[in-house]
Simulated scan of single mutants.
Amino acid sequence: MKVLVLAIDRDDDFGKKAGVEGPVIGKGKCIDAALKLSLADPEDSDANVVYAAVKLYDELKKSGEFEDVEVALITGHPDVGVKSDIELGRQLDIVLKKFPADGVIPVTDGAEDEQVFPILSSRLPIVSSKRVVVKQNETIETTYYVIYRYIKEILSDPEASRVFLGIPGLIFLLYGIGKLISLSYPQSMNIISNVVAGIILLFIGGYAFTRGFRIQVFRALTNEFIQLIFGVSGLLIITAGMVNAYVNIDTYAVQLMGYVPEPGPIKFILYIHSINTTVIIGIGVVLVGRIIQAYLRRNPHIWYNIAGILILPTFWIIIDVTTRYALGVVNFHSFGTILEILGAFVDVIFSVVASTFIRRYFISWASGGNSEVEETSEPVQGAESKA
Rank of each mutant, 00 (worst) to 15 (best):
I349A: 15
I306P: 15
V353F: 14
D347F: 14
V321P: 02
T337E: 05
V321L: 05
I269A: 11
F345K: 03
I280M: 12
R324C: 03
P265R: 08
A307Y: 09
F335T: 10
S351F: 02
S351D: 02
R290L: 12
I311A: 06
R297M: 07
I280D: 03
G282R: 05
I272T: 11
L339R: 14
T278P: 01
A354C: 07
R324I: 00
D320S: 13
V286K: 14
D320C: 08
G328I: 01
G328H: 06
S351W: 01
T323W: 07
T337V: 15
I341L: 14
G343N: 10
R360I: 09
F315Y: 04
F357D: 00
N299V: 05
I341W: 11
Y295M: 08
F332W: 02
A326F: 05
Y295H: 15
I317N: 01
P300H: 15
L312F: 08
I269Q: 01
F345H: 06
I338D: 09
I358F: 08
I306V: 14
Y271A: 07
T337D: 06
I269R: 02
F335V: 05
T278R: 01
D320F: 09
L296N: 15
G264L: 00
K267Q: 07
L339V: 12
I280A: 14
I311V: 07
V288H: 03
I280W: 09
F357W: 13
L312K: 07
A307E: 07
H301R: 10
G289M: 04
F315D: 00
Y304V: 10
F345T: 08
N299S: 12
N331C: 00
I309M: 04
I283S: 12
F315N: 00
L327R: 01
I306T: 08
R360V: 06
I306W: 07
R324H: 08
N331V: 01
H301G: 13
I317V: 11
I281C: 10
F335I: 03
R359S: 15
V353H: 11
L342A: 15
I302N: 14
I292A: 11
V330Q: 05
N305D: 15
G336R: 06
V353R: 12
D320Q: 08
I281D: 05
